[in-house]
């Protein structure tokens, strides 16, 4: 019998089952494989390369439940040429998918620890898979806290799920700016960190958002006594091949597509403040 050779550079054909508007510029696509096969299994934190025909290919983190593998969920913000074209796709439209790629969040390695999740903006998308995984094995973890910050109340994604999560673990949402009817917290997400309930000596922190937000969150966590090796960030850089060949995503000695996107803060701490990299 001949073994099937998988070419990581060749996309599979997927179709959009559902397109959900999360905010004015952010949407979630539910995808299934056109040939009827199950999508490949993935771990929370990994990403796929999504190919919009005629526009180009971009890396997007998987935001679905790793245990519900019939379909894939990808949440994207329309900011560039490809993502804007993606945002115009409709139910039934096709796109190419390669993956999954990259290092996942260290969930198996964090059994017995408190979990502190710090998300900024659309950075909640790659962390949603981790939240599903944690909730499916809740007994394996100590206190679980989600701190989520966005620009304004209109930028909050997964609002219905966030409300549900509030009954299952510690969830705090903050916005940077607001006018009007918002009665929640206002201030950058880093201001929530000192108030969160976790044991700094026995906590795994997982951070995803704009790089500067991750840097300051990590600094705040270190100030509180969390070791840099226990702080994980999900990095973004220009990725093309996604398998460490092309070198486009090189970040110091690391290839973000292969060594990341999830990396221990201790490994990249010294590089984060260098804007030229």
């Amino acid at each position: 019998m001949k073994n099937k050779v998988i070419n990581p550079l060749l996309p599979d054909l997927y179709r959009i089952k559902k397109m959900t508007r999360e905010t004015y510029d952010t949407f979630t696509m539910k995808l299934y494989k056109v040939n009827g096969e199950m999508p490949p299994s993935f771990k929370a934190g990994q990403f796929n390369m999504l190919y919009v025909f005629g526009a180009g290919e971009i890396p997007i983190s998987i935001s679905s439940d790793p245990h519900k593998s019939k379909t894939l969920l990808h949440t994207t913000r329309a900011v560039g040429t490809v993502s804007k074209a993606m945002g115009k796709l409709k139910r039934g439209d096709q796109l190419g998918v390669r993956g999954p790629f990259g290092n996942p969040w260290p969930l198996d390695e964090s059994h017995g620890s408190d979990i502190l999740i710090v998300a900024g903006g659309i950075g909640l998308a790659p962390l949603r898979s981790a939240i599903y995984e944690i909730l499916s094995k809740r007994q394996n973890y100590g206190n679980v806290v989600l701190l989520y910050g966005t620009r304004g109340p209109e930028d909050i994604i997964y609002s219905n799920e966030i409300e549900k999560w509030k009954s299952e673990f510690d969830v705090h949402v903050t916005v940077d700016h607001t006018i009007g009817n918002w009665n929640g917290h206002v201030g950058v997400v880093t201001t929530l960190i000192p108030k969160a309930t976790f044991d700094p000596l026995n906590t795994t922190a997982m951070i995803c958002g704009p790089e500067i937000m991750m840097r300051y969150s990590a600094l705040e966590l270190e100030n509180l006594g969390v070791r840099a090796e226990k702080i994980f960030v999900s990095m973004e850089r220009n990725m093309k091949c996604a398998i460490g060949f092309c070198g486009r995503c090189q970040f110091g000695p690391n290839f973000i597509c292969k060594d990341g996107p999830v990396l221990p803060y201790s490994k990249i701490k010294a590089l984060l403040g260098i804007w030229e990299i």
Binding site: I60, S61, V79
Partner: peptide
């Protein structure tokens, strides 16, 4: 911010 390299 336009960075089509890795949009979550």
């Amino acid at each position: 911010r336009v960075n089509e390299g890795h949009e979550e």
